[in-house]
């Protein structure tokens, strides 16, 4: 009797799962539903943009930097960091190219001066020396 009840429950659960699964699957794939969802998201985002703007103006009226302005500064810093990375890469490439040049090409023909090795990465070397100390 108990087993029969359990089986019935299992069967009921399976049926419910299939029914709900099919229904919800259809719903989330339905063009009208998707369009409605998008409109709702658009309204939320428009509201957010409005409130953010109002807040920015309020902060400006109090002579305080707003969140938008702070983010802009952070983005400027990111841009500076990006340029620094690009420049250091170009510098490394230049140093590599200099080191790869055969000694005969780099040394002046008549200058019997001992060649100084070109530092691979001056900042790193200085750091390494500091660590040794």
């Amino acid at each position: 009797m108990f087993t029969m009840g359990e089986d019935m429950m299992k069967q009921w659960a399976q049926n419910w799962e299939k029914l709900m699964g099919d229904h919800l699957e259809k719903l989330v794939h339905d063009e009208k539903f998707i369009s409605g969802m998008s409109k709702s998201i658009a309204a939320t985002m428009t509201g957010k943009a409005f409130y953010s703007k109002a807040l920015d103006e309020q902060m400006a009226a109090m002579n305080l930097p707003s969140r938008t302005e702070i983010i802009k500064i952070l983005q400027k810093l990111t841009d500076i960091e990006e340029r620094m990375i690009d420049l250091s890469e170009r510098f490394e490439d230049y140093v590599d190219a200099q080191q790869k040049k055969p000694a005969a090409q780099t040394a002046p023909k008549t200058a019997p001066v001992a060649e100084k090795p070109i530092p691979a990465a001056p900042a790193k070397e200085a750091k390494a020396k500091k660590q040794k100390k």
């Binding site: 794939h29 998707i34 969802m37 998201i41 985002m45 957010k48 953010s52």
Partner: peptide, 20 residues
């Protein structure tokens, strides 16, 4: 698939104007 459907009608301009 389903993501393309959502992407097609996603309010991308509103998103761009309000979020970073």
């Amino acid at each position: 698939g389903v993501f393309a459907k959502y992407a097609d009608s996603f309010p991308i301009e509103e998103f761009s104007a309000s979020m970073n």
